[in-house]
Design a binder for these strands. Structure first.
Length: 421
RNA sequence: GUGGGCGUAGCUCAGCUUGGUAGAGCGCCGGAUUGUGGUUCCGGUGGCCGAGGGUUCGAAUCCCUCCGCCCACCCCA
């Protein structure tokens, strides 16, 4: 008998989510769905892969994301497909394709599911990762920005997260941003040589990223660089002020971070991020922003301004985990002997039908009681010959050890009261 | 793509410096207790010591190569 010498394992950067961790994932997702519902967002499910061009156009042809960090492959007919690295482009594509702009009001859509990136994995960053996100399409109002931010904070709270910080910024629009970037580039020409190697390179290739440098020695220089919030055009400044005002009205604490510059071309005006200290180098739990030109870039004939965010679910689960325990088992049934087993199977079905989680296992009583304990059962029900003859069964409360002899109706009533609280 | 750390039981790890044929705790299984769990006690199962090659009488241990995982960088969706 030959056994394979190399075990097949989950591929690099992917992982299995096992119970009881999956309970935490479901808890986070349930919290998100509840909040989405409260804000009148509705779920959209887009394909997990798309034509490569969608992401290339949406994200920017020249970015690292497109050139080397996507899961791109050739289909059998020669077309280039890509596993979605994010969902915003897909949502906008669907919005255009199905003329959702013709539907009444704004489109408020949410999604959740796996995304893919082809990078070296590290803490909180996997090749298959999960995002929960939403897009509000069809309005430029700063009130929408604030509501989206309020909603995402509500999701985090509802999911059980505490101790996070909300960071916001405005990156301007097509008018003022290029001017600011040029200004920054000029400024860097004189100071860049005093900075770290990465920054010297970025000063040319991607000046905005210099602002995000973490090298300690560079910080004094960065402090003196011009800030984007001082270079917004009138319209962008008014928008930003209105967003901040609305956040204040809503009692949402935030910090303005002029150095919060999202890397993607399509972001305009409001950008935001939530960070949490326990995450290591990848400390961002969620990011989002306004993308008023994206729909046009993807071929929309109508102006479809939007704002959205996506939560890194892997990271959120990582910091929420531990606070929640797996769902307990309501009832464990221990039948003794063959006739009791058949009888118990029917009892199990009835209790399950009434909404309880029920497990049933045969074997030596000591053995199955041990199992009941390990499974975290709230109650154990012993079904033996004595019980069947008497029509009264032994119901044991596993936490107190108390046991009483009850009829089926009494058991049902007792379980209902004990478990409904 | 680049750098660093780590691969020994299901899990967490010791053993490696100074080579002598594999350990602990937890878990799992059984017993003390023929129909009663948790605590306790006793016993047991469990390892191609990541893979391949080399040195040696002898390698988990020393050397080389490869693979995998983790962390960080680049970048960030």
């Amino acid at each position: 008998m030959d056994f394979p010498t190399t075990l097949i394992k989950a591929v690099k950067g992917t992982r299995d989510l096992l119970p009881p961790a999956t309970e935490v994932w479901n808890g986070v997702e349930a919290a998100a769905r509840a909040v989405f519902r409260a804000y009148n967002y509705h779920e959209i499910r887009t394909p997990i892969f798309e034509e490569t061009q969608l992401f290339a156009r949406g994200v920017g042809e020249e970015t690292d994301i497109v050139t080397k960090e996507m899961y791109t492959f050739e289909d059998r007919d020669g077309s280039s497909l890509t596993l979605r690295p994010e969902c915003t482009a897909s949502v906008i594509r669907a919005y255009i394709e199905h003329r959702l702009d013709q539907r009444p009001g704004m489109q408020k859509l949410y999604y959740l599911g796996p995304m893919f990136r082809r990078e070296r994995p590290q803490k909180g960053r996997y090749r298959q990762f999960y995002q929960i996100g939403a897009e509000a399409i069809g309005s430029e109002s700063p009130m929408v920005d604030a509501e989206v931010i309020e909603m995402v904070v509500e999701i985090l709270k509802r999911a059980g997260l505490a101790g996070f910080e909300l960071l916001i910024n405005s990156v301007g629009d097509r008018n003022c941003r290029p001017q600011y970037v040029e200004r920054l580039r000029q400024e860097l020409k004189s100071v860049a040589q005093g900075m770290c190697g990465d920054c010297q390179r970025r000063a040319d290739t991607n000046p905005l990223r210099v602002l995000d440098c973490k090298v300690e020695a560079d910080q004094p220089i960065i402090e003196k660089l011009p800030s984007i919030v001082d270079h917004l055009c009138d319209a962008c400044r008014a928008h930003f002020e209105a967003v901040k005002q609305s956040l204040a009205d809503r009692g949402l604490p935030y910090q303005v971070r002029p150095r919060l510059v999202r890397g993607l071309d399509y972001y305009m005006r409001t950008t935001f991020e939530v960070v949490h200290g326990s995450l290591g180098a990848q400390n961002s739990v969620l990011g989002g922003g306004r993308y008023d030109g994206l729909a046009e870039a993807l071929g929309s004939k109508v102006h479809s301004p939007g704002i959205g965010f996506s939560i890194g679910e892997d990271r959120l689960v990582m910091i929420v985990e531990g606070g929640q325990s797996p769902a307990p088992l309501d009832l464990f049934i221990a039948p003794l002997g063959e006739p009791a087993l058949r009888h118990a199977a029917l009892m199990a079905r009835d209790f399950r039908e009434s909404g309880l989680s029920v497990e049933l296992a045969e074997g030596k009583l000591k053995r199955v009681m041990e199992l009941a304990n390990k499974l975290g059962a709230r109650f154990a029900l012993i079904v033996g010959e004595n019980e069947m003859a008497a029509g009264r069964y032994a119901l044991k409360d596993m936490s107190t050890g108390e046991q009483e002899s009850l009829t089926r109706d009494e058991i049902a009533a007792k379980l209902a009261t004990a478990l409904n609280c």
